[in-house]
Amino acid sequence: MHVEPEKTPTMVLDWGTLKWLVNPSTIEGTETTVGEVIVYPGRGHAIHNHPNAQEVLYVIEGEGVQTVGDSDPFPIKTGDAVFVPRGVDHSTFNTGWRALRLIVTYSPGGEERNFRSLPDYEEVPAGITPTWVREARPAE
């Protein structure tokens, strides 16, 4: 099945955007989730885990810091891949000045549904481009 990003809704959180191109909710019979995740400069997501799925992150562009389990934070950059075992705590933070773009997979698929329960979650309909609003900096 051919999936076009422009015809897919976008999940928006305060730290980035997520576009799930292949997942069990939208493609009958699929057993995995694949999507593009963009982490905004200077942002990242809280430590969390996926008790029911393993995750693979592939860095398309950018640089950041990753944690997996009890490891010390380690740098990630364009071309790197990270494997996160099922149920292991992990986090990603963008340390660069440009967007950190990732291809993310869950196996088995379905973990992407959990983003909907986060308090800062918003879904932008297909065909509408989400915008990032930078937080105002405090006066010096």
Rank of each mutant, 00 (worst) to 15 (best):
R113F: 06
V39K: 02
S107Y: 10
L118I: 07
V133E: 15
T8S: 07
H45K: 08
T33N: 02
K19M: 09
L102M: 13
A126M: 06
T129M: 09
M11V: 11
R134Y: 06
P24C: 08
V104H: 02
E4H: 14
V68W: 04
P119V: 02
V34P: 00
G69E: 04
V65R: 12
P41F: 07
R86F: 01
E122F: 07
A53H: 00
E112Y: 00
V88N: 04
I27S: 02
W15M: 09
G109H: 02
T131Y: 01
Y40D: 11
V68P: 02
E111W: 02
E36F: 03
T131E: 13
G110V: 01
V39G: 01
V34S: 06
S91A: 15
G29K: 13
L21R: 04
I128E: 13
V34L: 15
E31Q: 13
A99I: 08
L100S: 01
S71R: 15
Y121M: 05
A81C: 10
N49Y: 07
P130H: 04
D72S: 15
T92S: 08
P75H: 13
T105F: 03
N94Q: 10
W97T: 14
V3Q: 12
T131D: 06
G87C: 07
V104C: 11
D89R: 15
E36T: 10
P5Q: 10
E4Q: 14
E61I: 03
R134S: 13
W15V: 09
T26P: 00
P73S: 12
E122Q: 15
G110P: 01
G42L: 00
